[in-house]
Every structure is written in C-alpha cells, then in structure tokens.
Amino acid sequence: MSTAVETPRRKLAWSGANLIVLVYAFIPVLWIVSLSLKDTGTLNDGKFWPSSPTRDSYSQIFNNPDFLRALVNSIGICAIATVCALVFGTMAAYAIARLEFPGKRLIVGVSLLIAMFPQIALVTPLFKIETAIGIFDTWLGLIIPYITFALPLAIYTLSAFFREIPWELEKAAKMDGATPFQAFRRVITPLAMPGVFTTAILVFIACWNDFLFALSLTSTSRSRTVPAALSYFQGATTFEVPTGPIAAAAVVITVPIVIFVLFFQRRIVAGLTSGAVKG
C-alpha cells in the first residue's frame, strides 16, 4: 500500500492535523487553569496567561468545608457505584455472553432500554420515591441510580470482551478441576481485565460527571457531589460571580479523573498484550 510510505511531507501534514486537534482539545482546559490562577483584579483582563498568578482561589476552595465535603462525597459515591456496577456487570455480561437461559434477550433489551431512557423524565419519580423511603439526600440515594444507569454500559462493553475469550479455556479449566466460579474468577476474569478496566473508566467518568441527579436528589452538603456543589458556590457579595474558585474547583475535580485514566490505561495495554491464545 502506498500509505505505508512515510514521506516528510505526509509526516508534516499529520503533525499539523494532530496539532489542530490538540489545540482544540486543550485550549479550554488551559483557559480554566489560567482562570483559576488569576486574582479578582485581573480576572476579566482578557489575557490568556495570568499576569500575576495567585493561589487565592485554591486556598479559598480548600478552606470551604462544603467543597471538601462534596469532594469526599463524589469520590466515595462514584467509587462505590463503579465497583458495584462492575461486579454485577461482569457477572451479567458473562451470563449473557456464555449461557443460554430463558429471558436472555429480554434482559439485553431492557438494559438497552434503560440506557436510552431520558434521565430527566425520571428525576421527579425518583425524588418522590427517595423521599418516601427515606434515602433522599443520602449516598445510597445517588449510588442506586448511578448503578442503574451504569449497568447497561457495563454489560454491553463487558459481554463483548467475554465473547472474545475462547470457550476451550473454560473447558480446560473445568477439566483441570475448577468449579464454574473458580474458572470464572481465575481464568476468564483475568483475561477480561482490559474490558473490566475500560468499563471501570467509562462508568466512573459517567458517575463523576453527573449533574442532574446530584442536583435533584440531594439537598444538603451531606451527600452533594462536586458538580452540584459547584453550582452553590457564592461570591463575596450576592452580585459577584465566584469565577476564580469555580475554575479552581473545576481543575481540582479533573485531577482524579486524569489519575484514574492514566492508572487504568497502563493496565489496559498490559492486558491486551497477553491476549494471544493459540498459534
């Protein structure tokens, strides 16, 4: 194929294209970092780089107990929801990929339906239900809807990965004396790890970014997550918009996601190289 030839010109064209994409993706991020470092006087000066960088916004948010509490809530709620969604999702996906059972198509159909359902339509009923059973404004009140909406995603991604794993490995595990659960845990799951990590990232980001449920199913800082807490930030006066602290908070909540992705990305690559089964 002619595309295999790496001419300097082609290289240049690709570098240019990459640069455009990078600029497009990173300008807003850099802008928000820049905003978070500006002081109140230079906030609206229209310059890209802060002329006198200051940590005021950061010290302000880290001295705000509501924000710290929201950060703890976010991390806790998203981590628990991700773990639960992965555990249930892995088992459900395995069953869907490997077993024949009545109602299989129904389960797949329903999970697709949930994924497509407009969440805004569920806010009022969920609010009613949660106040009635007393889990409104609790961690559980957010974790349950998060798991519900993360499961279809988890099941779809994971069952695709499970289908890739040769049947014979499972038979071999059975012959080697494994119980079905041992085969699942020691042979199948390790091989599906790239899929599990991919799903973990997707589910965690989905929970972390949720604003709708976080806003409508909480009322105090007891269980309010960061995206919702940000909208309650107040300036020094009622008429002042706290742009600096909001920008700082936005930077702070991006950091865990980046760490999370970088950590799991390494595992994904490591997992894929071990995929070779037969020659």
Binding site: L169, K171, A172, M175, L191, S274, A276, V277, K278
Partner: peptide, 10 residues
C-alpha cells in the same frame, strides 16, 4: 484433557 488448540491460560 489435552485440547486441539492447547487452551493454555495466556
């Protein structure tokens, strides 16, 4: 059992 594809755990 020995399988045709060997079925080794990768």
């Amino acid at each position: 059992m020995v399988f045709q594809s060997y079925a080794l755990y990768p």
